[in-house]
Design a protein around this nucleic acid. Structure first.
Lengths: 234, 234, 234, 234
DNA sequence: AATGAATGAGCCTTCATTCAT
DNA sequence: TATGAATGAAGGCTCATTCAT
């Protein structure tokens, strides 16, 4: 029995992305750009990206078959090669593509109006709802899993997400220390500590959730209490 | 099915020939001493296990070629099948085998003579030296990576390592709370928080160490200060 | 594209793409005419079937290498798997495919105008020319050879050929007995006796023809004389 | 699924031939010849021959594993090579060995005291009880199955069994014709006709017995009636 | 002589990639 | 541009044969 046997996601490779529902080809005078061919190509590409992500997450890089990706995306196998050079670069490009929008949101200026803790808490909540709970969480696990085989991915992830995220977090911690919200100043040197439970939550969801469900929100809250001191009023 | 199933060497291919009555190993020198048949079989198995672990860690399950494992172990391809039923069960058995000794050590009674923090700190140090720094750390990452495709592995790991480890940790935390070493009693509900930075250290070593080295020991120390309160004298 | 029936093309890989609407085959010349996609697929399949039959007959199931089949058919190894699930089902499907047309001809109403003997004699002649002398004869031997290892094949052969053939023969014998062409009425219970020499002829051709050629036609004629009584005028 | 899967004769690869139950090694003074080593070797060889025959009949040449043969014979795999050069020559030698005693019995002078029909009938009965019903029948099918791939076997079989058997039968037929027991003199030219139903019986037993049991004795009797004329008193 | 661990050529099967339509 | 049949390199697994014990 090989890996493939276990997984049979392909069964529900439905929703071919409806490439047929094309809006009247090239209605001149409309606001939209050329639309026609290019637009459909973009749709197809999106379908492939979506399908590939699904498959890569479910099986990992090596065990994913492009055949299944094509089927799930509702395109022919050859079409994939019109958009990507090969499996490997598709994988790398995919990860990048998926990460970018997340990075952008995170990079937005924090807008600190109240306490630092409030900001961090909001971030934690966002993380839980938009990462730990979603496909994006699996993406993180995928990066952990394939990183060593794809240095380019690991590099990119470090550069774009990890280092920037930690830098932002460090700035916040410095502020909190300066304001007296956090006592332990050494924490600034290890922003990873603040992130750690969130990462654990992501991994836990993937591997152990059905053994013992984890209340990620409560955990993160407890952890923030540890960092900022217990709150008087909840 | 054929004899093999019934007669099966396959069922659980472990313990190849039960190395019975080995006369004082003589495993000292590098030159090959006489060595009995069974003994050499054991050596071979060990070589295969070692080689396979190396390859699986480096490439993941699907991308590992048994050919390479054999080459690295210095045996013929067929020899692998004298010890393991197939690639998949080799993988599972390997993980189990590698984990067990670690579990046993961890299960040893903590022997609390001084403060709870001292115990936890000793554990953290042990973790760094025996896990984060070693092959065992990569093993943890391997489990995270392949877990979803090998439920048996994930189950085993949860049962033998995670649940037991967390239970032990919780007991320690309860004691610490009772003794007043820890203020925040809610921590007992999330022993994962205590472990989290250690896990992060492991993952960091695998993926980002060459981008930015991480002083795991200092990080864990800082984290413990967060939990137990900053120490007056370091 | 909406091929996605329910994945699994494998189930029964027969009839690859249903060669729909083929424009006048143009299979005359040796040089390759344009020919549609589906048409060429059908040709390829036919080539594989032909090659496989040849190899299976020459070597038996286990000793036949798909590599050789592919080579003989002039296709790549992988192409075989576009038409058949695996070696085993290829074998079974092959046998079935080869038998069916023969069965159909045999099932055609006998059209008894003259004596029963004339009908049986015509059948015997047909058997010699279309079975004993041809590849089909080897096919029968192949079934005898592999039958015990392929119950499905033996079952099919019994159901479609043996039982139907014997039933038809029995009907004929009954008629002959009723008309007084055959004296020994017990023969009706063992139509196998009528077939037996024909089978022997088939086997003889495969195994001993080069030791001692057998005049199958004369033998069958002699046998019919035995059954119907010697003819006055030959 | 490969051939092997289907067959599971191996399950009963029991009765290891009890190589251990050796009679007191070399009791001098006994009537037996040297006994000791040589004798045991002979026993072993016999066990191997027996086991191999069983396996070859059940699976055919190519699909038979020497491992199974050894297991069934209760010897180590290597032991087989002390008695036979390789799988192929083992197979050929086996067939020869198994055929010889049968040939010898058949060659014994017929001793015609009564009618020829009585002699032939006795032979038929013997054939049924000693061939059609037994392992020897499967042997015949095995020869039919593997003959084309083992010309040496086919040659041997033709020379030792077929040609001699047919010659003997022809002599008998000539006598019967001379005595007036058989009318149709042309039968002498095709002694195969006399044998044919017996062969059919053998094949039938292997392939179709569970579909429709065949009363071989009644069939042969009917066939003899056809040849010799119906008997007045049964 | 007997053993059975070890070997490695060989075979079935998969799947990324190509290319004629 | 899109397709999917065709390809063939690659990899898991088997098993006849060897040989040190």
């Amino acid at each position: 029995m090989t890996t493939r046997k276990t997984a049979s996601t392909s069964g529900r490779a439905s929703e071919p992305r409806q490439a047929k529902a094309r809006t009247a080809p090239t209605r001149a005078g409309a606001h939209r750009p050329p639309a026609g061919r290019t637009e459909r190509a973009a749709e197809r590409r999106a379908a492939i990206v979506e399908a590939a992500m699904e498959e890569f997450i479910a099986r990992g890089f090596a065990a994913t078959r492009l055949d299944d990706v094509a089927k799930r995306a509702g395109v022919a196998k050859g079409t994939i090669y019109l958009h990507f050079k090969d499996k490997e670069s598709m994988f790398e490009e995919l990860i990048r593509t998926a990460i970018v929008p997340f990075v952008n949101r995170m990079t937005a200026p924090p807008m600190i109006t109240g306490s630092v803790r409030d900001v961090v808490e909001a971030m934690a909540r966002m993380f839980i709802h938009e990462v730990a709970t979603t496909r994006r969480g699996d993406l993180v696990r995928l990066i952990v899993a394939e990183g060593p085989r794809f240095p380019a991915i690991a590099d990119f992830y470090y550069r774009e997400v990890v280092s920037r995220g930690l830098a932002a977090l460090r700035a916040l911690l410095e502020l909190a220390v300066a304001r007296g919200e956090i006592r332990q100043s050494k924490l600034m040197q290890f922003p990873q500590i603040v992130i750690a439970p969130a990462m654990i939550a992501v991994i836990w969801k993937s591997l152990f959730e059905h053994h013992a469900p984890l209340d990620a929100e409560a955990m993160l809250h407890t952890h923030l209490d540890l960092i900022f001191g217990e709150r008087n009023a909840t």
